[in-house]
Design a protein around this nucleic acid. Sequence first.
DNA 1: CAGTTTATTGTAAGTACTTACAATTATTCT
DNA 2: AGAATAATTGTAAGTACTTACAATAAACTG
Lengths: 333, 333
Amino acid sequence: MNIYDVSKKANVSIATVSRVLNGNPNVSDKTRARVLEVMENLGYTPNVFARGLGLNTMRTIGIMCSDSSDLYLANAIYYLERDLRLNGYDSILCCTGYELETKQKYFDLLCSKRVDAIILAGSKFIEPRPKDNAYIQSAAAMIPIMLLNGYLEGENIYSTICDDFAATYHAASQLIRSGRRKLLYLYTSTSYSGANKLKGCQAALKDGGLCLEPEYIHQCRKDITAAKELLLSLREQGLEFDSILASSDSLAAGAVKYAHAAGISIPDELSVIGYNNSILSRCTDPELTTIDSKVEALCASTVNTLMGVFGGVNVPSRTTIAADLIKRATTNF
Amino acid sequence: MNIYDVSKKANVSIATVSRVLNGNPNVSDKTRARVLEVMENLGYTPNVFARGLGLNTMRTIGIMCSDSSDLYLANAIYYLERDLRLNGYDSILCCTGYELETKQKYFDLLCSKRVDAIILAGSKFIEPRPKDNAYIQSAAAMIPIMLLNGYLEGENIYSTICDDFAATYHAASQLIRSGRRKLLYLYTSTSYSGANKLKGCQAALKDGGLCLEPEYIHQCRKDITAAKELLLSLREQGLEFDSILASSDSLAAGAVKYAHAAGISIPDELSVIGYNNSILSRCTDPELTTIDSKVEALCASTVNTLMGVFGGVNVPSRTTIAADLIKRATTNF
DNA sequence: CAGTTTATTGTAAGTACTTACAATTATTCT
DNA sequence: AGAATAATTGTAAGTACTTACAATAAACTG
């Protein structure tokens, strides 16, 4: 069944049917009603391929992420899909893993699928070596690129980022104000977002008259047990700390477990702050004080910006959203 | 740039170019090489819409789930996307929420997008009232339907399910064998999968000479805090139990928190078993004994079956996969 | 080497839409 | 009412592929 069948039944030309299909206002109300009725009766649905051929758009957005089962990204995907659909767009999901080569491959694949834009979800797409990001910048010539929680300069590239610097600055300041002096910083990734988190923490300590010495900065796999083990071994080595600021709830959850295992009381002897306000932050005992990185707002802004781009509206190429400090039971403030 | 540009450069007809594109063997090696070289030089990529029009397939699978941020489903989506892509298929994601009407709407939408099949991920798509599933069965006339962890009778409908009955039967048996006598069963959903979990538990108790009385079966929102509160109030009411079998790790994590709050020691005074072997099961302290419902295997089987259907192979309409009991620290066996 | 078979290539007709432009009809103005 | 204008509708030419069938070239056969 196609547009011709409908046009015959409704006694109009295929052009009129097509106009009704596309909400073109140059159709009389009577005709529109008749055509819609015929469509309904026949159970007609337009063929998306023919449509795509003519319009050269599928109303589909490619979403790339490293790993959709990651707590943060799973949430991002949920909100992105929801908000895109509200705007009439489908989402094609692409999990790329962490290899640069794989990312590039999937990037090309999505481009060849003629998606209308690509959203790179999560900060893992911006490589530390600028030349490795060239593929993104060159693709942006063809198709709008949205970075969710990442930043890259370039024409037709739009970023929405959480103000990670301010977030960790505030969190660390609070720790200092509550009397903590020996802060341990735990992180996993050195991405744009990751770097800002560290900087915020360092700045807060500096402004508080303290200093974040290198032995108080530790990288750790994003894994509860790995974090726990790392902390146990640091303690074994004699490192003393009275508070932990972690770049993810996973690491913070590991810190809580560490305290349990070492017989340290939280928050009396040790404060812990996580990041992302994920489900894990409600699973530990005591529950985690954590930074809410506002995924939902980030996603909304990303989709909003994208719709602005499609609509030819002048949109900012960079949007920053403030994080919230969620105070729960692993801190004494 | 299109197939004509390539055909001119390569001095062949568009039919030959198309054949090369589709891997048709009726092209001489010399010609094929020449065409491929021209494609490479021109940076040609075929237009997916025109392709879809001709082939009437987009090599795209619709994945429907209630909520992609759910831990179980996020994993399922990850594995499905990965395995589909390995077979050259894209995934369009659709999060439907829990309303029957919304599910039907998105179902129609995906069908109209001419996806090659629809995967319904999670047991939430099979309604308790059979007539509400008619839309699935009628759509199956047009397009293969794959149920991941759900079961529905019907032509062109294929199910891959975890043997939930055997899983909870085994888990409950172990609890009994370890000396537990008063088992509390906690669940959230009454889906196909949910019903089987309960049945398995009941059967194990019965075979152990016990009985799961109604006051020992409680429904609870899939939320750590809700589960904790429920258990606290049950205890308040004087209900006595020495073990908890939960239909999800969330509920089990709530049980661990409950024990903490009530000063009950795990596993000495209370055993807890979760379900799904999710990240939560490693976050609680002690870590959860849990049932691994083998999402990865389920997804692999689903994709396998689907490829079989596409290939015209005779595939079973129902595949069952055995779960594993992961013994950790919330049980004393 | 002519005739037959097989391998390769080309022609042309789908596939189901969109849209510029032309044609028709309706409305407004004088 | 007739002309001018506006609203609506239709015609026809894209859009970029696939593929059945015809045509040609190559390989084999006796």
